[in-house]
Amino acid sequence: MKKDIILAGVGGQGILSIATIIGAAAVELGMHLKQAEVHGMSQRGGDVQSHLRISDNPIASDLIPQGKADLVISIEPMEALRYLPWLSNDGWVITNTEPFINVPNYPEKETVLAEVKKIKQHVMLDAEKIAKDLGNIKVANVVILGAASPYLGIAFDKLETAIREMFGRKGDDVVNLNLEALRAGAKIAKELN
């Protein structure tokens, strides 16, 4: 099994937490992993991405070649579009529909979503609304991860275990909130496809 995943968003939206959860699950399964992150200046409200590669075999490059990504997982709809050159012909885009507007020339939300709809295989969801309904808007990133879970090639319970390990120190409430977010996202993805 081999998955090349681009995680996208804006600095501070929590793409690294998603990467950590997938990474922990993959390592638990004995898989190889490489995950290139963005630190430094771009973290200040700029566009950020992480190249996450998991495979049963050793991985050469830290960066995913263009046209080879199996998945683009984005916490922001315009950011999902930025990485289309990396998406493979049969790849999936899983994205939040709620824009993060911190530039004056951000395009109309509807035109952005119309572009996402043109992508052959996509899952769109309002992760922030779902997170808010669960009680904390901060778990929107984990909702998105849940929506991506059917396409990861990793058993769902392994992701749950990774969440328990990652948030265990913060107490049961935080663990349960994140598990609920993961399940809510997964449920929507199944309903949509």
Binding site: R44, G45, T111
Partner: peptide
């Protein structure tokens, strides 16, 4: 040969870093 996927749609604008 190049393996590049679809082009970035024209409406995508750059998002430079900014003060918090």
């Amino acid at each position: 040969p190049a393996t590049r996927g679809e082009d970035v749609p024209a409406l995508v604008v750059s998002r430079p870093p900014s003060l918090c």
